[in-house]
Design a protein around this nucleic acid. Structure first.
Lengths: 260, 260
DNA sequence: GCCAATATTTAGTCTCGCCTAAAGATTGAG
DNA sequence: CTCAATCTTTAGGCGAGACTAAATATTGGC
């Protein structure tokens, strides 16, 4: 039995907790600019000391850089791994809602477990079956297989001026109760929203959504991301809802670098 | 914060290794009548000592009974858990082939990972989307959600008499190479098989399958399970392929206990 | 610029599954 | 019936990933 030369020594696949850490750190990093130990601990519902230990391990594996008492930063390797997991999660969420009839407040937990078990092949088949969607049911952009994603930041309903009309873009997938509430007032990605009035001192806002006029608190308002309406006489031929959340790479290579 | 009375103290969900052990033990038990430590070790590619340790843990959890140096036997609880995992596995395999276009030699590994992550809800949605199939792509019967399954044993091609015509029922899902080979000679569940001739001393068999006449070795022949052709003028109204592998419980409750 | 509050890390354990090596039980050949 | 070959179990460890308690670093208020 001749010992095979062990060609490039395949890197062992990441464990489930490792994927969760990378995903959480990625999200903290892009959202708040930095990822503190305690933030990661809170996101993963784990003791801070556990985070310190895991961070040391991830650093030795070249997935992130760690300056003690300062914080962590994903390396390219770590970021790619995080985006791979996020892609899986969002394609799974989309598939579960579009094909299997899940309500949008029920897909998060399911996707959270499946994202660690599904093969790349399965994810790509699901993506193809969906026509390669660029956004999940909550409006979050789906990273491409080669790890690119639209990371632009957006305004929220809380930032609206009275009388302004915009389109709902996105909301977090993590709070089922919020999602059910939003569905109840017809607030879902793609719908048009007009701010009719706002009470002073961070008070409730009155919106026009579809044919309703829901009144929402400022906390909720700050969680709903929006985008401008498309130009009135669309010069770029796009479908009304198909264009939101287009990742930079979903467009042909020739068209890149122009946006952002 | 009043300490909630902790109602019935929900049993913690089984871990992935535990599900794998129960599944392997179930299969050894129903196939060979008993499950020896070393058989389990071989099935799970784990050291025998590890099996002893795990078995002790499973016994304390009431999932199986263990007589040292003798063997193990699943309790009702353990059998139910095993069948739940097997149901998941087989529905997943069916879904992957029928809906997502997987080849039948590629579904085993994928299902093996997903079966631990999918919720009951997901599995039932997939089952419904498939019209509640009773057999997986390899012909294995799918246990019902309440844990019943057709456990009848069957003859194999190796048992055929020359000139006999039967229907292929089932083959193991675990050997991709075998599955590809079978697909190449049109051997798949549901097809009719006639034994044209057999060489003496356990020699190769010549079959008629579809419009081919493949010659197969006795090892392969012993792995392909068969069933009798349905009665010529079917008195029970059944679809030709729909009746194979019907679990005892797929029929209305009123019809149970009659078969077997 | 000091000190207290807060954040982070270290130190020491724990459980789960796995391993190897060695000891003990069973079985079958003669 | 006995002994060697073959299980099976015990003993002792290891790595991942979590925890608590205690030590240490940073920061913000004054």
């Amino acid at each position: 039995m001749p010992a095979r030369p062990t060609p490039p020594a395949a890197p062992p696949p990441l464990t489930e907790p490792v994927e969760d850490y990378l995903k959480a750190i990625y999200e903290l990093e892009t959202r708040s600019g930095a990822a503190a130990t305690s933030d990661v601990a809170q996101a993963l519902r784990v003791a801070p000391a556990s985070v310190t230990g895991m961070i040391r391990r991830l650093a030795t594996q070249g997935l992130l850089d760690h300056v003690p008492y300062r914080g962590v930063q994903l390396t390219d390797l770590g970021r790619r791994a995080a985006l791979r997991t996020i892609r899986r999660h969002r394609i799974l969420e989309t598939y579960l809602t579009q094909v299997l009839g899940y309500a949008w407040d029920r897909v998060h937990d399911e996707a959270e477990r499946l994202e660690h078990a599904a093969s790349d092949d399965l994810i790509e088949r699901m993506s193809a079956a969906l026509g390669h969607p660029t956004a999940d049911p909550h409006g979050a952009p789906i990273p491409t297989a080669d790890g690119r994603v639209d990371e632009r930041t957006h305004r929220t309903i809380a930032d609206l001026a009275v009388g302004e009309t915009v389109r709902m873009l996105r909301v977090s997938d993590k709070d089922p109760e919020l999602l059910r509430y939003l569905a109840g007032i017809a607030l879902q990605p793609g719908v048009e929203i007009t701010l009719l009035s706002r009470a002073p001192f961070d008070g409730p806002l009155t919106l026009r959504v579809a044919d309703g006029e829901p009144v929402v608190g400022s906390t909720l308002a700050a969680q709903v991301l929006i985008e401008p309406l498309p130009a009135r006489n669309a010069q770029r031929a796009v479908t009304p809802t198909g264009d939101r959340n287009t990742t930079t790479d979903a467009r042909p290579r020739s068209a890149r670098k122009s946006a952002r």
